[in-house]
Simulated assay, not measured.
Amino acid sequence: MFIAPVFHDLGYRVVVPDLLGYGGTSKPLDVKLYTFGYQAQDLIELLDSLGIKEVIPVGHDWGSGLAQRIYHFFPERVVALVLLSVAYFPPGKEDSPRDPVAANDEFERVDGYRRFQYQEHFIEDDAPKIWDEHLESAWTAIHGSDQEMAMKLYCQPGNFREYISNDRRDNPVYDFVKNLAIRDPWIKSMREGGFAAPFHWYRAFWENVHSTPEKDLPAERAKVDVPVLYMYCEHDIVCLGSDVLPFAKQGLLLDLTMYEIADIGHWVPYQRSEELNRLMKEWLEKKGL
């Protein structure tokens, strides 16, 4: 909502779909339907229905993963990629489920903290009910401005569950969180749709349903030969800019541009939309897009 109007006014045709589990679209509880490859097919069918042949996918967080898979499954349709917060990662070849505890043990060894600890809570069976019953608390929990508090909530066992279950709202938050024009539509949407479907994005990751179609992709499809713009946030403790470096060093990103957005956390579309739009516009012009 903070990006689309600008690029519409610049003459681009902009499509902003509600992704599976959110907003006005379907909210299935079959985790396999959240597979990136299947969702990419859905979006291509949407583009076909609109008569759009080529596209520049722009995605934030999980949307970044889906944007990448549109390229991997339909490279002939993609002329460039814009990835926000979540770095590039190639298609998966291993088809066994992931162990979140073992993964966080490894993150703690490498990064010094359990980077995806919060996701262990998100995939608990009763997590949707807890969040559905405490939406105001959830709103403050996920949009905190204090890094020390964010580290406690996101990266230490039990703290996210404790915060939401007790309906706490004492997490210091960014200014945009207090904007009722932003908060109230989110509260309304989540009250109507609930968290059961959105949390399936996390279940899909840990159950590794994405590999079902991905493991059959040609190996060369992991190499992205269109321009890629990757923007990440200085104070994001979960999505680190350095995550992209191993794949860049492997030569999988032939035309990569990186920008660090200073002094903010994860929610760059809310916090720095003007800077984000300016950087995207300059990059598009530089690339002749």
Rank of each mutant, 00 (worst) to 15 (best):
residue 59 G to Q: 04
residue 123 I to D: 03
residue 61 D to L: 10
residue 276 L to S: 01
residue 224 V to T: 05
residue 115 R to H: 09
residue 69 R to S: 07
residue 190 M to Y: 12
residue 134 H to W: 05
residue 38 Y to K: 15
residue 92 G to E: 13
residue 40 A to C: 09
residue 60 H to Y: 13
residue 221 R to A: 08
residue 246 P to N: 11
residue 60 H to S: 05
residue 141 A to G: 07
residue 21 G to V: 01
residue 3 I to H: 05
residue 68 Q to T: 08
residue 151 M to I: 07
residue 159 N to D: 12
residue 245 L to F: 10
residue 258 M to W: 02
residue 33 L to A: 06
residue 147 Q to H: 03
residue 119 Q to A: 14
residue 286 K to E: 15
residue 21 G to I: 02
residue 164 I to Y: 05
residue 143 H to N: 14
residue 19 L to C: 09
residue 167 D to T: 06
residue 134 H to I: 04
residue 213 P to T: 14
residue 285 E to R: 10
residue 34 Y to M: 07
residue 219 A to G: 06
residue 231 M to L: 15
residue 13 R to E: 08
residue 265 G to R: 04
residue 286 K to Y: 07
residue 252 L to N: 09
residue 256 L to V: 10
residue 93 K to M: 10
residue 76 E to N: 15
residue 289 L to N: 08
residue 204 A to M: 08
residue 141 A to Q: 00
residue 206 W to K: 09
residue 70 I to Y: 03
residue 36 F to A: 05
residue 145 S to R: 13
residue 212 T to R: 13
residue 29 L to N: 11
residue 276 L to K: 01
residue 225 D to K: 15
residue 82 V to E: 03
residue 134 H to R: 14
residue 160 F to K: 04
residue 236 D to F: 00
residue 208 N to H: 11
residue 285 E to K: 10
residue 55 V to A: 08
residue 22 Y to Q: 02
residue 150 A to N: 15
residue 233 C to K: 00
residue 289 L to W: 10
residue 85 S to D: 00
residue 287 K to L: 07
residue 83 L to H: 04
residue 154 Y to E: 00
residue 96 S to I: 15
residue 207 E to C: 05
residue 216 D to I: 08
residue 195 F to E: 00
residue 25 T to A: 00
residue 282 E to A: 11
residue 247 F to K: 08
residue 286 K to V: 08
residue 270 Y to S: 04
residue 45 E to S: 11
residue 173 V to L: 11
residue 204 A to P: 05
residue 279 L to N: 00
residue 47 L to T: 10
residue 20 L to A: 04
residue 28 P to C: 09
residue 93 K to V: 10
residue 166 N to G: 09
residue 117 Q to V: 01
residue 65 G to Q: 02
residue 146 D to E: 14
residue 98 R to Y: 11
residue 230 Y to N: 04
residue 135 L to Y: 12
residue 149 M to L: 15
residue 81 L to Q: 01
residue 167 D to Y: 10
residue 18 D to T: 10
residue 158 G to F: 07
